[in-house]
Amino acid sequence: MGSSLSENVQTYSRPPITEAVVEFRCKTIINDGLLSKVNKRFAGTYPSGTTVPVPKFHVHVDNRTGAATSSVSNTNAYRRSAHDEHDILLINPNSLVVAQSAPYPGWDKFFERVRHDLRIWREAGVTLELGRIGMRYINRIDIPDTAPVINPADYLKMSLAAPEELGPTISYATNGNFALSDLQSNLQINSGVFLPPPVPGYLSLLLDFDIGRELEVPQSEDDIISLLISLRHEKNRIFELIVTDKARELFK
């Protein structure tokens, strides 16, 4: 199955993506021994790594007496990275997270990593049923701070609507949740103003997509790949619906 498809996707020379993530989440927990084995399998691809203790809280209530006792134990998760934190992998007790920091290398390269890592994860022995497949793209649009007032609506078609009497805003945040019925998926969009701006001399707008499927989640590799391609298409389509030409000028 081709990954690129070279469809009519708008590409940009300076994509505003600060982070891209794909997550495969299991319905149950991977045992410690297997998780450690998975971590070792990824050591070649991701040479840097650290162990992250994850506290587990246990509460036991005696049905007869009602007395409750609690205890805490630790299990491990693993964080691995390569190429100066460009490629990041989180090996969690219930999920595998493939993350890409900026600069975004393009879908083809990122997707190649995702496919490779999914295959390694499964070959290492993770055969649990998947409960969710998700994708997150965080975009930051940096607008030169050259005018006294900037109207986010000039850049994003998803911004704040407020009574004129309130005057200009200092910042805002919006959150929208949408059902993508064709894909049996859910989309959440966050947009807003970064305050304070990460880059002096610029106003930065956030456009953050979290898209995923929890119903009838595909389990075979081909079906998973197919879903990811579809999710990415939909994400791109919606991105283009939301950004304006004025925004595109900033990163094309």
């Binding site: 993530v21 999920s95 997150r136």
Partner: peptide, 21 residues
């Protein structure tokens, strides 16, 4: 998941331990 999440709202679908780990 997010590298600069001090400024990015949580989304329930990516809550499960990802940021924690």
């Amino acid at each position: 998941v997010g590298f600069n999440l001090a400024h990015i709202p949580a989304t329930p679908h990516f809550q499960s331990g990802v940021g924690q780990f």
